[in-house]
Design a protein around this nucleic acid. Sequence first.
DNA 1: ATAAAGTAGTTTATAATATAAACCAAATAT
DNA 2: ATATTTGGTTTATATTATAAACTACTTTAT
Lengths: 96, 96
Amino acid sequence: MFKELNPLLHSELRLAVMSVLLSVESADFVYLREQTGATAGNLSVQLDKLQKAGYITIEKGFKGKMPRTTCAITQDGVAAFEEYVAALRSYIGKGI
Amino acid sequence: MFKELNPLLHSELRLAVMSVLLSVESADFVYLREQTGATAGNLSVQLDKLQKAGYITIEKGFKGKMPRTTCAITQDGVAAFEEYVAALRSYIGKGI
DNA sequence: ATAAAGTAGTTTATAATATAAACCAAATAT
DNA sequence: ATATTTGGTTTATATTATAAACTACTTTAT
């Protein structure tokens, strides 16, 4: 009847992050914070979870002298997102 | 950019309950438990929250000698569900 | 008639999650 | 020099979800 909703994606902030990363090749921490409106602390924690799940990659480097964290979605991430959307359909119908 | 996801509806079980109630005039506790696969305890708690939010009505009566709890979605509930679905679109795109 | 098992739930304790506040290190501005 | 800003992380707290334990009653078996 109802498909399971991947709990890693069924989170407002993590879903927003994935949504942003789907539409760009990569995005840095600050951009993600701006786009999602999240606090830095919350974003840091949620990015970590997405990385541990293998849904995104996180690269740390420097832009000039300033630290810079760059994120990108992985193939697994894309697949998980698509599955999540498909699962949602079982709750929502085609009305979305 | 991203619309807020009503936290009362952004819960797997509560969303499933609302989804069931949208498609029927009313449903009793046992039917909801069967359709959602939830434990009775969890269902009891979540129904309470939906009722307190005004999204469903809960009527307690008897079928013969056995207690019977009947639930139905309210107009507010329908509206909230539709808004939730609309908000989801901002994360999901038209891909759903 | 009584005991055992089942039904329909509620309450409560615990685990998981989300979130913000507090913190840190380095860079830049005054 | 020191104050402020930037780019984060860590950690403490509040919220949420969930199952386990319980209540109250009914049905069935003995």
